[in-house]
Design a protein around this nucleic acid. Sequence first.
DNA 1: CGCGTTCTTGAACTTTCTCAACGCCAGTGG
DNA 2: CCACTGGCGTTGAGAAAGTTCAAGAACGCG
Lengths: 265, 265
Amino acid sequence: MQDLEHRWPFRVAPRSSPAPVADRAPPGAVGEAVVSPGVGREVHFEPHSSIFLEGGAAAHVYQIARGCVMLSKLLPDGRRQVVEILGAGDVFGFSPESTYHCSAESLTATSCTSFARAALEHTPALMCRLSSHLHLQLCALHEHVTLLGRKSAMERVATFLMRCIPGRGGQDCPGPQHVDDGALVRLAMTRQEIADYLGLTIETVSRLLSKLKRRGLVSINKLDEITVRDVCLVCLMTGSHMTDGRLCESRGGLQPTRHPARARP
Amino acid sequence: MQDLEHRWPFRVAPRSSPAPVADRAPPGAVGEAVVSPGVGREVHFEPHSSIFLEGGAAAHVYQIARGCVMLSKLLPDGRRQVVEILGAGDVFGFSPESTYHCSAESLTATSCTSFARAALEHTPALMCRLSSHLHLQLCALHEHVTLLGRKSAMERVATFLMRCIPGRGGQDCPGPQHVDDGALVRLAMTRQEIADYLGLTIETVSRLLSKLKRRGLVSINKLDEITVRDVCLVCLMTGSHMTDGRLCESRGGLQPTRHPARARP
DNA sequence: CGCGTTCTTGAACTTTCTCAACGCCAGTGG
DNA sequence: CCACTGGCGTTGAGAAAGTTCAAGAACGCG
């Protein structure tokens, strides 16, 4: 259907044309036709405002028309995990219980269509249309589970940066388009949120960004605005590609034994 | 609707009645009515057989009628992550691309209803019925992301054991039913698979199971058969409960700053 | 019984976390 | 205008958790 990656299009502009900082229309067909057939209601959220809290009554289901939403969970001792980051077209607020199992917070200015849970249960057609988006999210979540379970800290940060650059890093990545393969990334997240997303501490995220800066791979313009100077090079650090040039070759079968948990040095 | 946990009911028997090692009907309504309206075909898999491989042509979507399935992904250097473990009622094989983005393997003897992808696309009603299961899986995946991102190795192992005991550890856990609060767990997974599921190494899993054994919390009968001697005590080690007695109290709001990444000693 | 596979255990080493100090920046109020 | 303050972010030193490597034990199967 369409690309799995870059489903939360942070405001990003190609390096060569630094102009359009305003929100762009999401790439791909993901954000298509968010029709609201009577039951749906348009709701808007400022950047970094709470949409609902973990444990609150699960009254509504939301579909994002524009913007970015972050879902997170807390452990009772205060450890937080950002569980999913969503963009246009994505659906959240489904809960098998009567309460939300995670909190939702907008990252950028966000518009959603909200559906009352009760109404939804009486409109199977609508329910289905919303559900049909979920397997995209499931797929992205699988990718993220792999990041959390098996990638080193640097690979996580590199992967994170690549996810902020639409159109690059996926299977159909066109490779560098200009001699200067750079991209401007607006993060819209604090270091703490990035850390909670990547399963790291804030210090580690900070240190690794500094290391990337020292190596000349990125430059940090404004804390939440990073220029990735060589997209391809950062992409090679994600752990998702063969480091010796070849891209993923087809695998002969499962390799059940001896898996190094982290990349070898 | 129903419980999130124990959605992959490994063969488990209460400690007091050690008899029924044979597969039990799944608890809850998850495994309801797996009707196959013409398009669906019944397929069976031996324990530990491959259902499809990551990168293979995504020809079918499956719904589990009975048994357990493990989804996994490989990084190009051979690191593996078990991404999801599924039980009766769960759906897998959806892919936004033309190829599968993960591999599927049966853990126990498994029966599935398989639907040709092409047929599915012409039967929106069926598609919807399958999709409607996905938000349950999404929810379980959020839980697992939290485990991978924020839990210590011991908390992961404890959580894993609790997930193998149906009816316990969830929000509606009845607590100990007998004076002797034990449970028999059939793992159906090798140590390597458990490690790949929990984002650890095989050595760490082995070490921590030994530590639990030394502390008298579990006993290991047959490598893949473990008796959890005190379910409640193991549950307190999962990191999902307040360790000082009280269960989760309602939280006042988001706590965006200072999150210890691991539990304090 | 012997062999291959899987699991366990130990010791050394890495990575990442923890704790603490410091820097930067924006907003505030004298 | 400038010092003060609070919130983030960065950096360093030391500690801890988990990994790696290697050897030995246990299991299962012919």
